[in-house]
Amino acid sequence: MATISLKNLTKTYGKVEVIHGIDLEIADGEFVVFVGPSGCGKSTTLRMVAGLEEVSGGEIRIGDRVVNELDPKQRNIAMVFQNYAIYPHMTVRENIAIGLYTQKLDKAEKARRVENAAEILGLTKFIDRRPAALSGGQRQRVAMGRAMVRDPAAFLFDEPLSNLDAQLRAQMRIEIKALHQRLGSTIAYVTHDQVEAMTMADRIVVMKDGHILQQGRPMEIYSNPVDVFTARFIGTPSMNVISSGQAGGEFGGDGGTPVLLGVRPQDLHVGPDAGEGHALSLSGPVTAVEPLGPETLVHFQLGDDTVIGTAPATEIPEVGSTVTAHAGRAHLHRFDAKTEKALERR
């Protein structure tokens, strides 16, 4: 296992710069998730670490070696791809063994490692099958087996779960996390799914337009986003962001300048004000309700915007009726209206 360190990393295609000088340290054994919308540069960054894209500027270190000029095979990393990329003409056993291609081990040792990896991943039953006879989840496990068997310095995952259905994705999230705890490996994981980021990461790196916007522990980013983008990207459903004018109360910045006010749907409670002195009260006609079981998401109109609040499961308001929702001051996030940066950190 090893550390990964990026220093002022840039990537240009022709004259267009897509990664603008990224600095990042991934500790030994740390699980770091890169998250951001399509085209934010997260996959490009990962592919530069893997050696599949040339580095335009800056430095990548794996362990204590600068790897900028090294071929992928010299970097001792393993990568799991979005569409698995396991070889259809080989059995599960052969696919996993490919991970040991460069290692000079005797046959018995290779076989032992392959079987061990298959066992850990629950693939022993399928070891002599070809990928065509496996389900999506099993295929992804074969890809992980191929990565694991080599005992690499670091694992790179490029959106490995995005082709799986929701249920399988949830299961694989747990499996990957368990695998990380078991192997103690350094992992760089790219996803556009903030749920994966929140549930699996030791540290989340939020990227947008080739920049790192924020990095930190999942709950730190959730409760302390640095700007409107991060605030809305992390957490589901997205944080409501309204102007202080719409909010009514005294929320303006210094000298009464307008600000943006953010409140998570989970913190915006639909129902009567119990006289607790809520800082924020919003009213409007209900446009949609989404009963989730334990609670109900209530969408209501506020000016031109739609705001989402939460109602108890037992009190589902009618669409078209007017509701009021409240939030305490502790749950309000204030952002500068122009720069969209957070005005205070907690």
Binding site: A50, P72, K73, M79, N83, A85, Y87, G99, T102
Partner: peptide, 14 residues
Amino acid sequence: VPDDFLEAARIDGM
């Protein structure tokens, strides 16, 4: 042939 196959093989050391 998807590039992923070839890139995976490159990483595997071929």
